[in-house]
Design a protein around this nucleic acid. Structure first.
Lengths: 139, 139
DNA sequence: TCCTAACTTGGACTTTGTCTAAGTCAACAC
DNA sequence: GTGTTGACTTAGACAAAGTCCAAGTTAGGA
């Protein structure tokens, strides 16, 4: 993730303590955090960091392509730092757990020209839905 | 869509004018409306209908499987009455236009067992992203 | 060390959606 | 037809998620 900070500095970013902390939080083990969760973890390291800055920083990271926005549930967006490896998401409709998954093949290949309506396609987001092992045994 | 009303009555629904109006609105040509857009169109036909009733009715239709919730942008959810024909969505990142599309094959087949992490899969939602003809010429 | 544009802050504001208590009415029984 | 009743609707308060702004702070170049 220090790679990330260097990349950002190379793009003219001012390297503030707030941005550093947000980057560190995203680099942790919890990889699909909401903005509020990022803020909560950031506050532990830098108590005076504001919500607005967290939103600003996340937005900038998304704009730079360093972080992905994931909207799996229509509630708060989640932020996925694994932006440099193409992947999709598998979501449990019991507990909401999210896993990164790697389907085979190119998802765009499944959409024939007749179904593209003149669009210039750039990508596809797939959300697989199911029950995770914990939730399916508990039923 | 009167089919829909009959189906709902068969399931014990009280057939109120409000529910009728919401069903009529969803049956129109604009098929990916937000809750507020549904409300705005419903008010044209039944001025006293409340936002709460629109939200309630949409939620019930989703619960009954008659309407799909679509979250393509992390903003307001959209409601898709085309629930009885499996389909996916193609979204323009210029103007936000949404089209129903029908990819070939079973999307679940692309996810090998080693990438399922013990989940019991039930479906997949695919959002194809691209530029629509209008937005790509205008650039 | 100084300067300044970029960054951050707190709080007001907006959008989207949920909840509640009180009033209304669709559908059934007669 | 009329009455009854529980399901439905309403207005408005509330909550969650996110945006915006004016004022203050600061990273990094000169």
């Amino acid at each position: 993730m220090s790679d990330l900070l260097e990349r950002l500095r190379g793009r003219g970013w001012r390297l503030t303590s707030q941005r550093r902390v947000v980057a560190e939080v995203l680099d942790g083990e919890h990889v699909h955090l909401t903005a509020d969760e990022v803020h909560a973890r950031a506050v532990e390291r830098l108590p005076e960091i504001s919500r607005a800055t967290v939103y600003n920083t996340l937005g900038e990271l998304v704009g730079l392509g360093e972080v992905l926005e994931v909207a799996t549930d229509g509630r708060a967006k989640r932020y996925d730092p694994n932006a440099h490896h193409a992947h999709q998401h598998l979501v449990c409709y019991g507990c909401g757990a999210i896993r990164d998954v790697h389907p085979q093949g190119d998802p765009l290949a499944a959409l024939p020209a007749s179904e593209r309506f003149g669009f210039t396609l750039s990508g596809a987001e797939i959300t697989y839905r199911g029950l995770c092992p914990d939730c399916s045994t508990g039923s």
